[in-house]
Amino acid sequence: MRLRRHFHSEEQTGIDLAPMLDFVMNLLIFFIITAVFSKELSLAVNRPGASTGQSAGSDTGSIAVAIRADGEVWVDQRTVDIRAVRANIERLHAIKPEWGVMVIADEAADAGVLVTVVDQIKQGGVDNITFGTASLKK
């Protein structure tokens, strides 16, 4: 009987974990709800010297790609099909490996065309892409 009573009193000294569990559970539910697992996919591009409007890199040149308001794409002063941008960039990149690409889009051109062109340029092997906007004239 004495031994039993001793065991009983030891149990009484233990902390009741139920309230702590409630608290931790609530924290857990909060973090599960706020957790966002979807990563936003994106394409990294540079902007030219922004407000000052200076051209990117004066010592090295860049391959010029223009997008007109109607979605027409020009690479190296020639109009090309949007699917042919990759091949053109590959060719020019082979000639000038250290050059980046300067994409100049008309302000009224669709962003969808821009993303497709940037994607094609990246597929063509150039990662240094600068994106500028202008109002291109006929």
Binding site: S42, S51, D106, A111, G132
Partner: peptide, 30 residues
């Protein structure tokens, strides 16, 4: 993140504003 039909002029302006706000790493969502 620009809609397919959004204009690049606005996209460029937003990117410039972000840079002016101090964040240099800007990417276009796709």
């Amino acid at each position: 993140v620009a809609d397919k039909t959004a204009k690049t002029g606005i996209l460029g302006k937003v990117m410039d504003e972000v840079k002016a706000g101090g964040i240099k790493d800007v990417a276009i969502g796709a």
